[in-house]
Write a protein that binds this DNA or RNA. Sequence first.
DNA 1: CGGAGATACTTAACATGTTAAATGAATGCG
DNA 2: CGCATTCATTTAACATGTTAAGTATCTCCG
Lengths: 176, 176
Amino acid sequence: MTKKSADPANGGAPAAGPAARQVPMRDFSRSLPMSLLRAREAVMRQFRPSLREHGLTEQQWRILRALASIEAVEVTELARTAFLLGPSLSRILRDLEARNLIERKTAKADQRRSVVSISKDGVKLMASVAPTSEAIYAEITRRFGARKLAELQEMLGELERSLAGLGASEEASPEE
Amino acid sequence: MTKKSADPANGGAPAAGPAARQVPMRDFSRSLPMSLLRAREAVMRQFRPSLREHGLTEQQWRILRALASIEAVEVTELARTAFLLGPSLSRILRDLEARNLIERKTAKADQRRSVVSISKDGVKLMASVAPTSEAIYAEITRRFGARKLAELQEMLGELERSLAGLGASEEASPEE
DNA sequence: CGGAGATACTTAACATGTTAAATGAATGCG
DNA sequence: CGCATTCATTTAACATGTTAAGTATCTCCG
C-alpha cells in the first residue's frame, strides 16, 4: 500500500552490460528538462486525485479554468491560453461539449472560426472543484514558501523568455 | 512556413458568453503548474528537432542516456531513473529492442525481473546525437546564465522535496 | 469574378501518460 | 508441500502530445 521505497539491496552483483559508459554526458538526472519534469510532476500529483474524483483530467480542468475567466474565445486563442496544441484541444472540446460543460457556436463574421464558452453545468462543476483545488495550492505555497514560489516563477518566466525564438524558424543548416 | 506568431490584435470585442466569471480563482496562466509546463516546453522545443532527425523521441532518448551510464539495470529501477511509468517504459523497451538499440535478459536469480542494457548500435546512436544535444544545452546555459540555471535547479529540487510525501498514501478519507 | 494561397479547425496516425487489470514468478506460512 | 499473498512486468483502455494531412472558408489580387 505504501510506495515502493527504493530497494538498495542489490549492491552485490554489478551485472556487467554489453556496451555502456562509452559516451560521456552530463549526469542525466540533473538535466534541466528532468528537473522541470520532476518538479511539475510533484506538483500535479497533488491535484490529480481531486480532479479525478470530479471526472476531469488536468487538461480539461485547464480549459474550464481558462474559459471561466474570459467569457468566450475562439479555439485558437483558447489553445494559446490553455497551452494546448490544436489537435488535443479539438478532441477535448468535442468531449466537453458532449458532456454539456461548454458551448460553441460559429462566428458570424467568419464561418471558419468557432467561439467557445463555459456552460452553466461547467460553472457548477468548477464551483465544486475550485475549493479543493485552491486548498491544495495554498498548502503547496505554505510548504514551499510564498516568497520562494514567487521567485521560482519569476525564474521560470525568465527562462522562457531567454529561449523565446531560439528554435523558432531561423536556425541555419537546412541540410538534410 | 514560419510559426503562427502570436496575434494580440483582438483587444476589441469582448464577445459576451453564456455563463462566465462566476467562479473566482487565481489567474490561470500564472499558476505554478502552468509556469513549469511552459518552461519545460520552451526547453524541450530546442531538443526535439535534433532528436527527431535521429528517429528518437524525448523518452527514448532519456532511456538511452540512462542506460549509457549504468551498465545494466532492472526495468523497475530504469523506470525510476528515467522517470517513466511502468507501462510507458514497457512499450518503449519493446520498440527499442526491436530496433536493436537495447538488449535484455531475464535475471537468473529471479525470473520475474528483466535486466536491460544498451547495445552497440545504441551506443553508436548516442554518439551521433550527443554532440548536438550537448551544444543545445550549452546554448541554453549561455542564454539563461549558468549561475541562474544552477539556482533554478536548486529551487526545483527544493520544491520537489517540500512536496514529497504529501499525497503519497497517508491522506485520510478512504470514503469512496 | 475567380482561382491561388492563406487561415481555422479537424482528422489521422503514432507515441506516451495514466490508471486498472492481468500474467507469471517468488515468498511466506500453516 | 500447498496456496494465498506479494512482487515485477506486461497488457488493456482511454486521454493527451506531436506532426502531418485534410476540409472548409476566407482574402486578395489579377
